[in-house]
């Protein structure tokens, strides 16, 4: 009995010892492996991560600088944009562009990841090139164009009035022409009023204003749309008035 127990114990010992040895070996080696590989890699990885973020951020700044340059070129050629409005928009573009250039220098020299992330967020939140600067420029251009259009249409309306006066002197029926002219003049006045307030509504807006209220350009944009619709109505009414005058002459 004792001999059988001893044999069983021997067999068990033979089987378990290598298993325990195998199980212990990786445990002993595990801490060594990461220490050997990670210790020299950590600073490199960190540096590579910083460089990656820097590249992405600097690319985003370049993208905005290109957009501002394109807007500047467009403003220089924009017809009907008043000189004062053009100067104000160009000043904003220049300030935005130089601000982004300074930020690019800061980002280039940054070696702290957290600081770098905060500086990169400033590219968007501190300048709002696509959400505010460029749309504002377009809205001012469009509203100045609309105001110039009301002046031109006013001249046409005056000529139609003169034609109506002449037709009246010749005892022709001018009722339809007069009604169309009244519609035309009302539409011109509405367009002038809507377009006239756009510049003041948008020119002083800052990125902080946009950050506080993302819909800050919605109302001025609606005013330009409304002015456009009124101009369409004025043109149609002017053509109707002229047609009525021609019909009364035959």
């Amino acid at each position: 009995m004792k001999t059988r127990f001893a044999l069983v114990a021997l067999v068990a010992a033979c089987l378990l010892t290598p298993t325990a040895a195998l199980a212990q070996r990786p445990e002993a080696q595990r801490p060594e492996r990461p220490e050997q590989t990670e210790r020299p890699e950590r600073p490199e990885r960190r540096e590579a991560a910083i460089d990656g973020v820097k590249t992405r951020c600097l690319n985003q700044i370049d993208r905005r600088q290109r957009a501002l340059s394109a807007d500047k070129a467009r403003l220089e050629k924009a017809r009907f944009l008043t000189d004062a409005h053009q100067a104000a928009l160009e000043a904003i573009n220049n300030q935005t562009s130089s601000g982004l250039a300074r930020l690019a220098d800061v980002i280039q020299g940054e070696d702290n990841v957290e600081e770098l992330r905060a500086e990169c967020r400033q590219i968007v939140e501190g300048f709002r090139v696509f959400a505010l600067v460029r749309p504002r420029s377009r809205l001012v251009t469009a509203s100045d164009r609309a105001i110039a259009a009301t002046t031109k249409l006013g001249g046409v309306a005056d000529r139609i009035q003169a034609a109506i006066d002449q037709a009246k002197a010749e005892n022709r029926d001018t009722a339809a022409a007069e009604a169309s002219l009244a519609t035309m003049r009302a539409a011109i006045a509405t367009a002038a009023s809507d377009a006239g307030g756009v510049y003041e509504a948008v020119i002083h807006l800052t990125p902080a204003d946009y950050n506080a209220n993302n819909a800050v350009l919605d109302r001025p944009r609606g005013k330009v749309r409304s002015a456009r619709d009124s101009l369409k109505q004025a043109i149609a009414a002017g053509r109707d008035a002229r047609q009525s005058l021609k019909a009364s002459a035959t």
Binding site: L139, T141, A146, A149, K152, R228, L231, I235
Partner: peptide, 13 residues
């Protein structure tokens, strides 16, 4: 001019 205004509005959007 209306067509140009339309283009400006489209670009702003």
């Amino acid at each position: 001019m209306l067509r140009d205004i339309e283009a400006d509005l489209g670009a702003a959007d």
